[in-house]
C-alpha cells in the first residue's frame, strides 16, 4: 500500500521543526551555518531543497498595500508550506537514473540507493520540482521518506515533529480522503482550497499538499512534466536528421564522382 505525506498548508505555522528533525534524524550537517546570510525572502533563509535540506519551509506573504488604512482583516495572508520530495507515482528521477540507484520501495516511495549512485546528476535535471540535489560526496540525495524508520514501523521524523499535524503520514488513499474532507470544510467557510498531487500531477504524488492558492504561488509547477515524454520524439528527430545527412552526404560524394568522371573524359590539357 502506498504511504506518503498529506501536508495541510493551512495549519502550518512555519516553525521549521520538520527541517530540524530531518537534519537530526538523518545526521545531515547544516550548510555552512556561520556563513549564511539573511536572504530577505520573508522568514525563509534556506532557499531551496538541496542535498542537505530535504525539507524546506516556504513563506509567501500576501498582504495588500492598503492594510495601513484598513488593517489586515481583509485578505491578508501569510502562506507557509513545507516542501519535500513528492515521491511521485511516476517519478522523473527514477525514469532517467542510469545506474538503477533510484528505486521504488515497498512503501511506494522513491529511494536513492547511495551505494549505487555514481553522481551523473541526470536525476537533478529530471525532477520537475527541483528536489534532488548532488551532495559534496558526489552522490545524489533527497528525502528518503525515512525509509529506515518505516521499516521499523515508525513514521518519518518530520511528521512526528510537526506540532500542528500539518504533516501527516499514512496510507495515501486514507490521507487523500482526509484532504478531500478538509478542502470541502474550508470551501464551506469560503476558503478556496485545492489538493495538489492527485493523479493529474505526474500520475499522482504520494506526498501531496492542500493549498489555498495556485501552485505557482507556492513555487510548484502547475503542470509538471516527465523527462521521458519527449525522448521518443527527439530520437525520431535525430533519426530523420541522420537520414537527411546520409542523403545529402551521398549526393555530395556521388556528384563529385560524376563530375570527376566527366572531367576525366575531357581534354587532358585542362588538368592543372
Amino acid at each position: 500500500m502506498a504511504k506518503g505525506f498529506y501536508t495541510d498548508t493551512t495549519v502550518c505555522i512555519g516553525c521549521k521543526a520538520c527541517q530540524v528533525a530531518c537534519h537530526q534524524w538523518n545526521g545531515l550537517p547544516a550548510e555552512e551555518p556561520g556563513e549564511r546570510e539573511l536572504t530577505g525572502d520573508s522568514y525563509d533563509n534556506t532557499g531551496t531543497l538541496s542535498a542537505l535540506n530535504w525539507r524546506h519551509v516556504k513563506f509567501i506573504e500576501q498582504i495588500p498595500e492598503d492594510r495601513h488604512q484598513n488593517g489586515f482583516l481583509d485578505g491578508s495572508r501569510w502562506l507557509m508550506m513545507s516542501d519535500v520530495c513528492k515521491h511521485c507515482v511516476h517519478a522523473g528521477c527514477l525514469e532517467v537514473c542510469p545506474t538503477g540507484a533510484i528505486i521504488r520501495t515497498e512503501f511506494d516511495s522513491v529511494f536513492i540507493q547511495t551505494d549505487v549512485c555514481n553522481g551523473c546528476r541526470a536525476c537533478l535535471a529530471a525532477c520537475p520540482f527541483g528536489v534532488v540535489d548532488i551532495g559534496s560526496d558526489g552522490k545524489a540525495h533527497k528525502c528518503t521518506l525515512c525509509y529506515d524508520r518505516l521499516q521499523h514501523g515508525m513514521e518519518p521524523a518530520c511528521a512526528q515533529a510537526c506540532p500542528t499535524d500539518s504533516i501527516r503520514f499514512g496510507e495515501v488513499s486514507e490521507l487523500m480522503a482526509l484532504a478531500e474532507q478538509r478542502a470541502a470544510d474550508l470551501g464551506a467557510h469560503g476558503i478556496q482550497a485545492q489538493i495538489y498531487g492527485k493523479d493529474d500531477i505526474v500520475g499522482g504524488l504520494n506526498c501531496f499538499y492542500l493549498l489555498v492558492d495556485k501552485p505557482e504561488v507556492y513555487g510548484l509547477p502547475a503542470k509538471p512534466e516527465l523527462p521521458s515524454s519527449n525522448v521518443a520524439a527527439a530520437l525520431g528527430g535525430s533519426a530523420a536528421t541522420a537520414a537527411l545527412l546520409a542523403i545529402t552526404g551521398a549526393v555530395s560524394f556521388r556528384k563529385r564522382r560524376m563530375d570527376d568522371m566527366s572531367r576525366d573524359e575531357s581534354a587532358p590539357e585542362d588538368e592543372p
Binding site: A125, C127, E225, P227, V231, A234, G237
Partner: peptide
Amino acid sequence: GVLLVGTTRPVWYNAIPLGG
C-alpha cells in the same frame, strides 16, 4: 541532444529538434 531533452528543464525539455 536527446540526453538534454530527457530532463524537465524547460529549455531542454521542449527542445525536441535538439537531438537532430
